[in-house]
Structures are given as C-alpha cells and as structure tokens.
Simulated scan of single mutants.
Amino acid sequence: MDLDAYVLAHHPEWQRLEELTRRRRLSGEESDEFVERYQQVATHLSVVRTSAPDATLVAHLSSLLSRARNRAAGTRVGTWRGVAGFFVDRFPAALYRLRWWCLGTLAANVLVTAVMMLWLLDHPDVEQSLLSPQEVDQLVNQDFEGYYSQYAAGHFAAQVWVNNAWVSALCLALGVLGFPVVVLLFRNIANLAIIGSIMTRHDRGGHFWGLILPHGLLELTAVFVAGGVGLRLFWSWVEPGELTRSQSLAREGRTAGTVALGLVAVLFVSGLIEAFVTPSGLPTWARIGIGILAESVFFAYVFVIGRAAVARGQTGDIDAALLEDRVATQA
C-alpha cells in the first residue's frame, strides 16, 4: 500500500472527525456524521496497522480515536465506586489468577532463607568475615531493636512504605527481564538470613522473630507477590501460549500495573504495623498475633474475594472499553 497516497486520500476525513470532536455541541445531523467518521477512521487505523504500520501515523490515529471516544461517551470521572470496584474486582482477580506464581515465589524464598540461616549457623566464621565483634555486639544489643524506634512512628511508617514500595516496584518494572527479579529477591532475603543467624547465635532469636513477624509476614508477602508477578511478566513473552508475544506481554504488563497499585495499599498497612505495633509495649504474642491476623486477612482477600471476582469474569486486566479500538476491515 502507498502510505502517502492513503494519507492524502483520507486526511480530510480525519480532519473532519477532529473538528467534530472539538465542538462543544453537535446537531442531530452532526452527531450522525460524527459516528460515521469515527467508524471510518477506526477502519483506516486497522488498515494502516495491517498494511503499512507507520508508528507516527498509528499514534496519531489512535489519539484521535481516543479523544473522539471520550467525546462520545463523556469524560470518565474517578469515583469512590471506581475505587471500590478496583479493590473488589480487579486487584483481587489479578492476585487470584497469578496465585501460583506468587505462592511459588513465596515458598522458594522461605526455603532459601531457611537454608541460608541454617548454613550460616553452622559456619560462624562467615559472620566474622562480614562483621567485626564490635559491630556484631552493636547489632545484637542496640541497632536491631533501635531501628524500630529511632524515628517518630508516623515518619517511620512513611519511610518503610516508600522503601518497600520501591523494592516491589523494581520487581515489577524489571520483571520483563526475569533475572533482575531473582537478584532483588535474593538480596532481600540474604539480609534477613544474615541478621537472623547472628541474632540466633547470640541467644536473641526470640527477640528477632518477635520484632520481625508482626509486620514482616505481610510486608514480605507483598514483596514476594511483586516478584511472582514480575516473573510471570517475563514468562509471558517466553511462552505466550495462544496469544502473540506482544499481546501476552501487553496483557500481563497491564495486570502488573494493577498489582502495583494494589500493593501500595498492602504495603501501607504493613508500614503502619511496623511503625505502631512492632515497637509497641504490647506482649510479643499480641504483636505476632496482629501480624498473623493481617496475613490471614490478605490470604482470605486473595482466595475468597479474588476467586469470586474471577468467577464473575474478572482477570485483573483493565476494562475492555479502555483498550484500543479493533475494527474488522474488508479487503
């Protein structure tokens, strides 16, 4: 197809649609013309994509159709109903659909952490190569517990939230590459295993778990969910299944965006627990109980609300109405 000739032949129709889109009010005749022009331009976009996929022209026509669609349907306004729909349908459906990737990532990290801690406990010389005796004493007797009370609770909650959100965001953003996610997760659990083994060797294991578990259960689960979704994003182009690689990657990328938004709320909750519950004067059993409760609520959210959302046809992807126009064309 001669792209220049095609543009020259149909440019007046594109201009006319843009003109109608910009008008504040349309007469009955103009409204009919608007619908007709919209259908024509959608067909032109499909033809260009199929026969002469020029990126600039595709972007221009897609933008024109998007503005026209918003003009026809009215501007979408975010409402509390939309927020509720996200947390009742889209986010839990994404978690439930990707549950095996998330659970597999969680199980693998827990196993590796346990193995690393046991190995480090059996090799005390490694501890000596990482920290001096003075640094170990500082960590065991002051730094570890002091970490949770060195800032005002509100400030600490914000700091923790931003840090964990950043780690989770990296897992999702770098998921398409696969290996960087593994590196990020390993660094995360390596720090946990090293500190845990040092605290245990110096008879502070109970203190360690008493401070880690209240917030760590939900916090680490959120990070592992991000890692699992990131690895699924990588696998979407390695093994796209019935879809093309681009379609599979696009779908999982949009779903990863859904999970990223939802995890902001999950990590906010874990940050509040870490700031207000972990350093509190509550008994250890009460603090750990709060952590277990938060973790149980999250899993119930995934497997009860998420399963119901999937049964209603939700996938975690964005609404079909928000996707680009796809119009069948005739030869």
Rank of each mutant, 00 (worst) to 15 (best):
V266T: 02
Q247A: 14
L263D: 06
F234N: 03
S248K: 15
A173F: 15
T221E: 00
H202P: 04
G154W: 08
L192H: 05
I195R: 11
T244G: 06
H215V: 02
N164G: 01
L231G: 12
G262K: 08
Y151V: 08
I198N: 04
V229M: 03
P214T: 14
A190F: 05
T244K: 08
W161Q: 01
L172W: 09
N163V: 12
L172G: 09
L243D: 14
A165I: 07
R254D: 11
V160K: 06
A265L: 12
L177Y: 05
F186D: 15
G216H: 03
A153T: 01
W209C: 00
Q159A: 10
R232W: 07
N191F: 11
A157K: 15
A222Y: 10
L218T: 07
G205W: 05
N163R: 11
L231F: 01
A250C: 05
A250I: 15
G175E: 07
E145Q: 00
E242A: 15
I189F: 06
V223Q: 10
A169E: 07
S197N: 02
Y151M: 15
C171G: 01
A158S: 06
A193V: 08
F234D: 06
L263H: 09
G216K: 08
G262A: 00
G253Q: 06
R187C: 15
V182G: 13
A256H: 04
L243P: 12
Q150V: 01
E242Y: 10
F144A: 09
L170Y: 14
V264S: 08
V264A: 09
N188I: 00
A193W: 06
R232D: 07
E145V: 10
G210F: 08
V182N: 12
R187K: 14
L213K: 04
D143S: 08
A190R: 12
L220S: 02
I189C: 11
S246F: 13
C171Q: 08
Q150P: 12
E239D: 05
G241S: 04
R187Q: 09
A152P: 05
R201H: 12
